[in-house]
Design a protein around this nucleic acid. Structure first.
Length: 416
RNA sequence: GCGGAAGUAGCUCAGUUGGCAGAGCACCUGGUUGUGGCCCAGGUGGCCGUGGGUUCAAGUCCCAUCUUUCGCCCCA
């Protein structure tokens, strides 16, 4: 029989990784609760149209990377490639905006994109996601960015850079876009890569984001969004910077930071690490003032970010595994049932541990107990069975004692 | 979607010019009465990714394919 394998880009997370992911989620809860966020779990699957309307049909995510298929009634559905769209759908559908003027949600879970897997990029990957829906004020942007940096510091991420840019708004971006496009057309376009020659027409801002050295060089004197923002956008951006400065949060202005999803407006930010390989971006987000409207809600501004858990995991070590309190070893088959009862008794006494089901020689049993890492070995042979005792051995100092069955819990807990 | 690299024991990897399938670690069993780690001895464990081809003979050469991995693109 051929072995069944996991789907490419879909990973199993065993103890160490699983513990690390749990730590990340718990830390997120702790930090985000301090900022007034509540947890929202949205479905893994949505109608495809939701993603088309929120993320944008011109993006790579929607065009080439979604897991899309029809249900039995022929409706197109997709596994979520990111979290924001689903959160916004839930917000609009449940009319949350009518109940509160500011909503703060965080969510953590798997996302799906059909890309070529590589370091820090899986097809099923996991994000921690925060959305603050309602406020248009720049302090909300600053709070969101500050919270992200707080969180990253809280979990122990170091050597990262916060990059900041403003993408303008519907009042000023179209004019800038046109100016940039004309400027690009005036270049000798043969120095641009094939993709950029196409992007020039479809999405000129993306040309600035190209990593091709020749494109970077060619566009180094390109007109900048920040020089073409309207007064409102400029003031907004200035306040965001002031707030970050007041918190000693260091940032770099990155004029090439454009973001890949169409819904972003004004503030855009990204946190980059340079020691996890090519996929260096560990978190990114921005303001999305037109998003709620684009999926059929009222005109409500918002800002959010997503943080890639696999990429955080590359930068962190798993927390140490907790030590078991006991390991029960039985020395012959007649003792197995008594061993089972002992294990249950200890667990009901709030102790953690396992029983080696197979009876073994004393030497082998001790090797198993040692390997388990438990603090105490509990040995059960014929004499323990007869006298209704448990032989309990402290694995650290080697001392041991025959303890009456009923006193084993307190013996282990109090060491006597 | 496009490139590069790699698939041999549970893990990390050797394997020469084509000539008996290997090491270290791990695992198991012992080292004299019911006691772990260190040490010693022995042992289990392999369709050499898969399918074709060349050859007296293929882990080794050729073709295909799958998988993993690092990049590109894109993104978190």
């Amino acid at each position: 029989m051929a072995k069944i394998q996991a789907i490419k880009g879909f990973a199993d997370l065993f103890a160490d990784e699983s513990r690390l992911f749990t730590f990340l989620e718990q830390s997120a809860r702790t930090v985000f609760f301090r900022y007034g966020f509540t947890e929202l779990r949205t479905p893994l699957m949505e109608y495809t149209d939701l993603f088309c309307r929120s993320i944008g049909t011109e993006t790579d995510v929607v065009q080439k990377e979604m897991y899309t298929f029809n249900d039995s009634k022929g409706r197109s559905m997709s596994l979520r490639p990111e979290a924001t769209a689903g959160v916004m759908r839930a917000y609009v559908e449940n009319n949350v905006g009518a109940k509160e003027s500011v909503s703060k949600f965080f969510t953590a879970g798997p996302m799906f994109r059909h890309e070529r897997p590589q370091k820090g990029r899986m097809r099923q990957f996991h994000q921690i996601n925060c959305e603050c829906i309602g406020p248009k004020e720049p302090e909300a942007d600053a709070e969101m960015i500050s919270m992200l940096m707080y969180f990253l510091n809280y979990i122990g991420i170091k050597n990262i850079t916060l990059q900041l840019n403003s993408l303008g708004c519907p009042n000023c971006r179209p004019a800038y876009r046109e100016k940039l496009q004309n400027w690009l057309k005036s270049l000798d376009t043969s120095v641009l890569c094939e993709d950029c020659r196409r992007r020039m027409e479809t999405n000129p801002l993306r040309v600035l984001d190209c990593k091709n050295p020749s494109c970077k060089e060619a566009t180094k004197d390109a007109p900048l969004m920040l020089d073409h923002t309207c007064d409102e956008c400029a003031g907004h951006f200035q306040t965001v910077k002031n707030c970050l400065d007041s918190q000693n949060i260091h940032y770099e202005i990155n004029h090439r930071l454009v973001r890949g999803l169409d819904y972003y407006t004004r503030t855009a930010f990204e946190v980059v690490s340079d020691n996890i390989g090519a996929q260096g971006s560990i978190a990114g987000g921005g303001r999305y003032d037109g998003l709620v409207e684009s999926i059929g809600g009222s005109s409500v501004p918002g800002i959010g970010f997503a943080c890639g858990m696999e990429r955080l995991a590359l930068l962190l070590q798993a927390p140490e595994a907790p030590k078991a309190d006991f390991y029960i070893a039985v020395l012959d088959d007649a003792c197995r049932e008594y061993g089972f009862k002992a294990a249950q008794m200890l667990r009901h006494g709030e102790l953690c541990g396992t029983m080696g089901f197979e009876s073994r020689s004393i030497k082998s049993a001790m090797r198993q107990a040692d390997k388990s890492g438990a603090k105490y070995a509990v040995l059960i042979g014929s004499s323990e069975l007869e006298q209704h005792n448990l032989m309990i051995k402290n694995m650290e100092n080697g001392t041991q004692e025959a303890v009456p069955f009923d006193r084993a819990v307190s013996f282990i807990k109090e060491g006597k």
